[in-house]
Amino acid sequence: MQSFSFSKAQTVDEATGLGGRYIGGGTTLVDLMKLDVETPKTLVDVTGLPLAAVEKLPDGGLRIGALVRNSDLAFDPTVKAEYAVLSEALLSGASAQLRNMATTGGNLLQRTRCPYFRDTSYTNCNKRNPGSGCAAMDGHNRMMAILGTSEDCIATHPSDMAVAMTALEATVHVQGAKGKREIAIGEFYKLPGTTPNVENALEPGELITHVTLPTPRRGSKQVYLKLRDRASYEFALASAAVVAETSGGHVRYVRVALGGVGTRPWRAHEAEAALVGKPATAEHFRAAAEAALKGAKPQTENGFKVELAKRCMTRALTMATA
C-alpha cells in the first residue's frame, strides 16, 4: 500500500471540491490498495455525507442515497415489498460483514475480480496498464465473461446489485465540477472495447449521489436467481434478474438482465423483444435465452457458462411468470 492523504467530507460540495478518490465502505478500494492495484494519493471519505436515506419519491419511484449500506437497502421495507429483485440480488452478494460495510455507490463501482487485474506482478493487463495485453485470455479464465468481451479484455462485471438495477431501469445521479447530471444505468457502464480501463460514464471527480428507481410496475413479479459453485459467498457464474408481467398466459412486459457473464451488467434486449406478446411457456423462455446468448464468446475454461446462463434465465423467467 502506498501513502495517501485522507480527509472526511461533510457536504457534497466539499467532497467534490476536495479532488480526491472517494471512499465508501472501502471493501473494494482498500482491498485493491493493499494489493497496490489502486494507488490513490488522496482519499475523500464520503460516509459522512447526508446521502444515507432510502426515500419514496412523489412520482412513486424510490430514491436511494449513495451511502445506503447494502444490508440496509436489502432490508428496507419498500425495497423488500416493491423491488424484491434488488433485495434478493443484494443478499446473494458477498457476505453479511461485507454487505454491512458496502455502500450503494461503491457497489456500482466495484471492480472486477479478474485475478490478473488484482495482481501487479502481471504487467499484462489492459485494464490496469492500458496497452499491455491481457493475461487472462491465455490464463485461468473460468470466471471470465462471455458477453461484451473484446480482444483487449474479458473481465466480468462482478456486481449482483447492478444487475437488478439494470432490470429495474435505474438512473444514476451524479454531481461534479460541472454540476449535477443523470445517467440511465443502461448508459452508465461501458463495454471494454479497446479501452477496458474506462469502465463507466463518470467524469473525473464526479460523485454518485443517488440512484433512483422508477415506480414499480403494477402486477409485475420480480426474481433474482444466482448460480454458483457454493451456496454463499461467491460471485455469480451466471445470474438473472427478471421483472415480468403476464396476463392471459402471455408476457406483457419483461425486463431481463444477466450477471456473471458480461463485461457489464447485461441487459438482454434481444430476449425481451423475443418475449413480449408471446405465451409464457418454457419453450419461449428458452428461445429468449438462446437469443440473449447468441453473441456469446466463451474462453478455454468457461464454455459451460453459455448453457448455464440460458438455464438460469429460463428458470428465472419461469419463476417470474408462475
Binding site: 475480480r113 485475478p115 495482481d119 490464463g139 485461468h140 457454493r230 451456496a231 454463499s232 459467498y233 461467491e234
Partner: peptide, 18 residues
C-alpha cells in the same frame, strides 16, 4: 506456476450454507 486462486474468496471451501 502461481496458485492463481490463492485467497479465501477465490479458493472455495464449504461455507456454513453448504
Amino acid at each position: 506456476g502461481q496458485p492463481i486462486n490463492g485467497n479465501l474468496a477465490d479458493y472455495l471451501m464449504a461455507t456454513s450454507a453448504d
